[in-house]
Design a protein around this nucleic acid. Structure first.
Length: 569
RNA sequence: CGGGGCGUAGCGCAGUUUGGUAGCGCGCUUGGUUCGGGACCAAGAGGCCGUGGGUUCAAGUCCCGCCGCCCCGACCA
């Protein structure tokens, strides 16, 4: 392939709209162009990468017994109304009406579509399990699309849905997908980590997210340095800590603490450690006001509070709510003497504190010698704190570390949430009707492409991992006026392609520097330079994009050497 | 939706304070010289200054409305 024939308009300067590296580099490398906010055209180079990722995904899905199908993007409202999600999904769903005023949406996901399909055709346990998947555009009208392909409104997704007769079957399907995902991201040569994830309102035991490790990742994860535990911080459970305070419970006293609105201020003024204070965070929820208590040196994990209380919505309480509902004062909230309607959820470690300091619910006052149980009662005592670096691993108690990641996949046990709602049932061995037990497993394909760049780039451009590079090799004749060089470059390129190595040669009448810069920007794993020496000494110069390492191979045996190099990379 | 910023040539930007003939760099076209890390010289093409209204002799610039984009937050693959 001649580079001049590829529609890859590279840019010397970074368009102002791009913030994150993957977005900047894909625009500059002529891979994507924006059509609207969060909606992009994939130009040929990007499309080649996407097809390679999809190919790996397909092979791994098929290897686990998955069958590919294609479902509509435009979905009728009825099935969403039946599952109850037409109302729940809210503004994030792209909705449209046809000429007869019938309601449709652009599919954000396909549980409804696949479940109504399977329910109409599957009757018997003998037909299960079934693993069906699709790769296609999905749509979410994100409040704020950003980061280029990382959070678009239209994106390419692989979703596989499993249907089993019971939970044992689901566990097997789940394991298959977990393994398949591990294979997919390994084959893409990405540094990633499967982490335990929150399974949200659906509950149940199982969900893992697959995180591509990158500084720019939106998700925070913790992992153990001595065992293989890893989790999203939202999910990470915590062992109760040792008691830190001992001694006799002293009488409750009120202290003047003007302008001390933070834990740090209070601790400083009272000459105590942050560990001896109680942090009170006020929330508004669909079940009314909830006060969450953690030790002063800890943070509240909102997701845990949400799950422990079976809530749907939780937000920080407004100042108005703190005054009206809590009858308190922002900055001076505490658990003592609140109105009865305030539900108190306390972290396990708070209940072990003795003679702590907490807000007095009066402006510029705190309470000292607060003793949980004596001075306030918690409605719920649970693990609600956010894990911190060096907290003990919940599996082996060794200190955990933190990292950032980009969520590129999630495996999820749905159980019978959708099969019950949509009546996808089968007859078991005893002729009894039961709902199918489902799982869903997604991979953000277009996001994976972006994540690969976030993890592999330098100041010159992209550094593609070999398996997903748009082309593995670029061949550059240094002097485009030198017919010998040009002819050799074309020959080398043809040879490589004949041996299954995706290659281009840069036939443009440009100075060498321009061609080198574009090659680095686009990020071919290998660059072959054809210069004067290639002609006089019959050698080619091969440079590894990632390391900059240079090899010289003879024109007689470069093929074997390049094949070997590509396998090593 | 709340907070902040921006819409001027394909891209990056200046010009707006103080209204008076629309500019710079890169890219693009043509010719010449160059040719191993984004060359040089010369000559060109290219803009309803996001959009609608208003003020004015005169609006890129002042006023009002609308649209779009980017960043921070709630949401998420």
């Amino acid at each position: 392939m001649k580079f001049s024939q590829i529609y890859a308009p590279t840019l010397r300067e970074t368009p102002a709209e791009a913030e994150v590296v993957s977005h900047q580099l894909m625009l500059r490398a002529g891979m994507i162009r924006k059509a609207a906010g969060g909606i992009y055209t994939y130009l040929p180079l990007a499309w080649r990468v996407l097809k390679k990722i999809e190919h790996i995904v397909r092979e791994e899905m098929d290897a686990q017994g998955g069958q590919e199908l294609l479902m509509p993007i435009v979905q009728p409202a009825e099935m969403w109304q039946e599952s109850g999600r037409w109302a729940v999904y809210g503004d994030e769903m792209f909705r449209l009406t046809d000429r007869h005023d019938r309601n449709f949406c652009l599919g954000p996901t396909h549980e409804e579509m696949i479940t109504t399909l399977v329910r109409s055709d599957v009757r018997s346990y003998r037909q299960l399990p079934i693993l069906l998947y699709q790769i296609q555009n999905k749509y979410r009208d994100e409040i704020r699309p950003r980061f280029g392909l990382m959070r678009g409104r239209e994106f390419i997704m692989k979703d596989l849905y499993s249907f089993d007769k019971d939970e044992d079957g689901l566990n097997i399907s789940y394991k298959k997908m977990y393994d398949a995902y591990t294979n997919v991201f390994s084959r893409c040569k990405l540094k990633f980590r499967p982490v335990e994830a929150d399974s949200g309102a659906i509950g149940g035991s199982g969900s893992h997210e697959f995180m591509v490790l990158a500084e720019s990742g939106e998700a925070e994860i913790v992992y153990c340095t001595s065992c293989d535990y890893a989790a999203n911080v939202e999910k990470a459970e915590l062992l109760p800590l040792d008691e830190i305070s001992t001694g006799e419970k002293l009488p409750l006293t009120q202290v003047h603490t003007p302008n001390c609105k933070s834990i740090a201020d209070v601790a400083k003024l009272l000459h105590i450690d942050k560990q001896q204070t109680i942090k009170s965070i006020a929330f508004e929820t669909d079940q009314g006001p909830v006060l969450a208590l953690v030790r002063g040196d800890h943070e509240v994990n909102e997701i845990k509070v949400l799950n422990k209380l079976n809530l749907i919505n939780i937000t920080m309480a407004s100042e108005k709510s703190i005054i009206d509902d809590y009858q308190s004062v922002p900055g001076f909230i505490g658990p003592c003497g609140l109105p009865k309607k305030i539900k108190i959820i306390a972290d396990v470690n708070v209940m072990k504190m003795i003679n702590a300091a907490a807000g007095a619910n009066i402006a510029d006052y705190h309470l000292q010698n607060v003793n949980p149980g004596r001075d306030f009662a918690a409605d719920i005592i649970a693990d609600i704190r956010l894990i911190q670096e060096n907290d003990p691993c919940p599996h082996c108690a060794m200190p955990v570390k933190k990292a950032r990641g980009i969520e590129v996949g999630q495996v999820f046990k749905l159980f019978t949430k959708y099969s019950s709602a949509l009546k996808a049932t089968y007859l078991d061995e005893n002729g009894k009707e039961k709902p199918m037990v489902m799982g869903c497993y997604g991979i953000g394909v277009s996001r994976t492409m972006a994540a690969a760049i976030e993890q592999n780039y330098d100041e010159h451009g992209i550094i593609w991992p070999v398996p997903i590079a748009p082309y593995q090799v670029v061949v550059i004749p240094v002097n485009s006026k030198d017919t010998n060089q040009v002819q050799l470059a074309e020959l080398v390129c043809r040879q490589l392609n004949l041996h299954g190595i995706d290659s281009v040669w840069d036939d443009r009448n440009e100075r060498a520097g321009v061609k080198f810069k574009d090659a680095d920007l686009i990020g071919y794993p290998l660059k072959i330079t054809i210069g004067p020496k290639s002609i006089s000494e019959q050698t080619v110069e091969v440079k590894e994009r990632k390391t900059g390492q240079i090899h010289f191979f003879s024109t007689s045996d470069y093929l074997e050497n390049i094949i070997e190099l590509l396998q090593k990379l």
